[in-house]
Design a protein around this nucleic acid. Sequence first.
DNA 1: TATTGTTATACTCTATAACTATA
DNA 2: TATAGTTATAGAGTATAACAATA
Lengths: 162, 162
Amino acid sequence: MAEPQNDKPGPAAEPSFDLQKFFPYRLAILAEQVSETVAQIYADRFDLGRQEWRILSAIGYRNGMPAKEAGDYAALDKMQVSRAVANLVEKGLATREVDAADRRNHLLRLTEAGRALYLKIIPLALAREAFVLDALSPEEARVLDGALDKLSARARELRRIG
Amino acid sequence: MAEPQNDKPGPAAEPSFDLQKFFPYRLAILAEQVSETVAQIYADRFDLGRQEWRILSAIGYRNGMPAKEAGDYAALDKMQVSRAVANLVEKGLATREVDAADRRNHLLRLTEAGRALYLKIIPLALAREAFVLDALSPEEARVLDGALDKLSARARELRRIG
DNA sequence: TATTGTTATACTCTATAACTATA
DNA sequence: TATAGTTATAGAGTATAACAATA
């Protein structure tokens, strides 16, 4: 689509940076594309926002999870959790009750309708994941799996040191 | 952090979906983390938005690129390009001129200040990329590189068929 | 004092579409 | 008619902080 300018060979040459080959950019584009395939399920078919989908997954994983834990589990901050939960409650998919043992905690549970929706969405989401990952050989998938963890650790380290 | 509920073993067992192991989720989290390490450069240090950074990269890659091509290159739609360019022009980093050959096209160029900024940012961005990728062996990096392309193709295919 | 959660506010992104100009 | 680009608008997402309740 586009060739680099190269009018001046020699010492003054450009660093020759190509966004298309830049790993953070490629990763961001891929993540968007893959997220979109899952959003086609929970958003387009079932009218859930991304945060509602994540909280639904958290409660589906362990019913009665405190809101704080659900936020840690789903990488959402307390505000996002609060609003996602409010939406799910309003839609009749979840309930929120004060924890008698520590009244600061709000325990989240799926309603019957929420559980039914969860059980409908999960197989579809897993099928999407499987279809995408089917592009890779088992060996490639294994390497990728390990690479994600290693890269994540490095990125966290870099973020920490600024 | 959280163990799955398993009150009912047997035929009625849950699909056992764990968001933390779900590839689209893991990929999204990683992409955010990695993008953040680069944003620390262009946003925190040089006060550029993500879209301005991408357009700067496009023009840096080939000076005089038409706005349309810059959008294709940087995965931005025409609106995003229009506003990113307006910001860059306002900051004195880029110029926009009508293409005499086809007056619908707007050719984008870096000013001297824009080129200077570009030359400052690029080595820093490449160093961040290198630091993150240094988590991988050459073989792992090679597999990852191929995997990104294969996964992207699969995701595009899935998006197409809905 | 620290933790959990809610609410308010403003800012950024995103998506849709209406619009202009050029071809 | 089709393409390139701008502008308007509303909706979603994000970040900061103030606030209330509980420990």
